[in-house]
């Protein structure tokens, strides 16, 4: 990435299979535009979410983490 290009963050998005993953699906089907910076990781339930996932994501160099249930 060159210096003057706009900064494009990488965001790890942990989405619950039943809630936000469905919403993402619906957003796709409804052809809603949203920024392409999120990298979706599907989790079976937000209850599966562990703090170590978040810290591990940061450690591996993401610029932001988004957890959505």
């Amino acid at each position: 990435m060159s210096e003057n290009a706009e900064f494009q963050p990488r965001i790890a998005a942990f989405l619950c299979n039943w809630c936000s993953y469905g919403a993402a699906d619906l957003a796709g089907v409804s052809r809603l535009q949203y920024p392409p910076n999120i990298h979706v990781i599907r989790i079976p339930c937000t209850g599966r979410m562990s703090p170590k996932f978040i810290l591990s994501a940061f450690r591996k160099g993401v610029d932001g983490v988004w957890v959505s249930g």
């Binding site: 936000s20 619906l26 957890v67 249930g69």
Partner: peptide, 9 residues
């Protein structure tokens, strides 16, 4: 840097 949200399907 860290965000949480509730979104229904």
């Amino acid at each position: 840097r860290l965000h949480f949200s509730w979104i229904s399907s």
